[in-house]
C-alpha cells in the first residue's frame, strides 16, 4: 500500500514538473511550484521524514511561494516567447541525467535495513541519543546537538539572506500622509477571520517551538509559522499597521540577536572548559545540560528565522506598495 501511494505521488510530481516547462503563465508556474512542494512534503511523510515534511510545507509551499508571487506582482506574469534554441540545454540535461542513472545502478536497494547508510554513523543516533541527549525526537538531537555546528551555519545562512535582501531592497518607512491605501479594507469577512486566526497561529508557533524536542518541529518551523501569522496580518490590515506592531528596525535587531543567542551557548560552554557548543558542560548533569543547550539554541534559531522571514516579506511588500503608488 505504502509503495502504491509512493508511486502515485511520484508520478504526480513528474507531471507537475513537466507542466512547468511548457507553461508561459508565470502565475500558474508559481502555483504549480507550490503544488510540487506540497506533493514532496507528502512524499517526505510517506518516507518517515516528518520534520522535513513540516519544513518543506511551511517553506517551499509557504514562504517561497509567497515571495515568488510578490515578485510576480512587480515583474509581470507572462513569460515572453523566446526564440533561442533549447537544444544545448536539452543535451546537457540528457548527459547529466544519464550520468545519474549510471550512478543509481550501484545504489543500495531502496529501503533495505542493512544499507550502508543505516550502518556506520546512524545507529548511535538511534540507539544512544535518547540516553546521551535525552530527547525522544532523534532528528532534534542530531540537528541541535551532534550536528549543532551545521545548524549554527544554517542560522547564519538565514541571516546572510536577510543582509542580502536588506541591501537589495531596503525597507523604507513612508511618512504618514504619503501612506497609500493598503490592506483589504472592504473585505470584512477576511478581516474578522484573520483576527480570530492570528492568535491561534502564534500559539501554534510557540507549541512547535517548545515541543520540537518531543515531536516534529523546532525553532525553524516555529519561526516560519510565527512569521506567517504576521504576514497574514500585514496582508489584511496593511503594511503601516503591521509596522506599528513589529517595526522593521526592531526586526533588524532581532535577527542578529537570535544568531548571537545561539553562538553565546557555544561561547559559554567554552568558558566552562568544554569545546564550542558542548552542551554537556552547561549543567552538572550532562543530560540536563544537553536539554538547556537545545532549548536555548532552538530559541535562537526561532527568533532569527522569524525576524528574517518577516523582514524579507516587509521588503517585498514595501516594494509592491511603492510601485502601486507610481
Amino acid at each position: 500500500m505504502a509503495v502504491l501511494i509512493d508511486l502515485v505521488l511520484l508520478a504526480m510530481l513528474a507531471i507537475t514538473a513537466l507542466r512547468v516547462i511548457f507553461l508561459k503563465d508565470l502565475f500558474a508556474v508559481v502555483m504549480l511550484f507550490g503544488i510540487y512542494s506540497f506533493l514532496s512534503a507528502l512524499i517526505f511523510v510517506s518516507l518517515d521524514a516528518v520534520d522535513v515534511a513540516f519544513t518543506e510545507a511551511s517553506v517551499g509551499a509557504g514562504i517561497s511561494t509567497v515571495l515568488m508571487l510578490g515578485t510576480l506582482a512587480l515583474t509581470g506574469r507572462t513569460e515572453k516567447e523566446n526564440k533561442h534554441s533549447s537544444l544545448l540545454p536539452f543535451l546537457v540535461v540528457v548527459v547529466t541525467g544519464a550520468a545519474l542513472v549510471y550512478g543509481t545502478l550501484d545504489m543500495p536497494p531502496f529501503g533495505h535495513p542493512d544499507n550502508p547508510v543505516h550502518e556506520h554513523v546512524a545507529p548511535r543516533y538511534i540507539e544512544q541519543s535518547p540516553k546521551e541527549v535525552g530527547l525522544p525526537n532523534m532528528v532534534t538531537s542530531v540537528l541541535a546537538s551532534y550536528r549543532g555546528f551545521d545548524t549554527l551555519g544554517e542560522t547564519v545562512v538565514v541571516f546572510a539572506a536577510a543582509i542580502g535582501v536588506m541591501s537589495l531592497l531596503g525597507i523604507r518607512r513612508r511618512s504618514e500622509d504619503e501612506t497609500p491605501e493598503s490592506g483589504l479594507k472592504e473585505h470584512q469577512v477576511l478581516r474578522v477571520v484573520a483576527k480570530l486566526l492570528i492568535p491561534f497561529v502564534v500559539l501554534f508557533a510557540l507549541y512547535v517551538q517548545f515541543h520540537g524536542d518531543f515531536g516534529p518541529g523546532g525553532g525553524f518551523q516555529a519561526g516560519v509559522i510565527a512569521a506567517a501569522a504576521f504576514i497574514l496580518y500585514a496582508l489584511v490590515y496593511g503594511l503601516p499597521l503591521a509596522f506599528q506592531v513589529i517595526g522593521p528596525k526592531f526586526l533588524q535587531l532581532l535577527a542578529p540577536f537570535g544568531v548571537l543567542l545561539y553562538a553565546s551557548v557555544g561561547l559559554y560552554s567554552m568558558f566552562k572548559g568544554g569545546l564550542f557548543l558542548d552542551y554537556n558542560t552547561l549543567a552538572s548533569d550532562p543530560v540536563a545540560g544537553q536539554h538547556y543547550g537545545i532549548i536555548i539554541i532552538e530559541l535562537g534559531v526561532g527568533i532569527t528565522v522569524f525576524a528574517v522571514m518577516l523582514s524579507i516579506f516587509y521588503a517585498f511588500a514595501s516594494q509592491a506598495e511603492r510601485s502601486n503608488v507610481q
Binding site: 556506520h120 554513523v121 548511535r124 543516533y125 546537538s145 551532534y146 550536528r147 549543532g148 555546528f149 551545521d150 560552554s269 568544554g274 569545546l275 564550542f276 557548543l277 558542548d278 552542551y279 554537556n280 558542560t281
Partner: peptide, 13 residues
Amino acid sequence: SYAMGGWPPPWGI
C-alpha cells in the same frame, strides 16, 4: 582536530 559540540567524529562535526 577539534570536535565541535564535544562529539567525537564521525558522529559530530
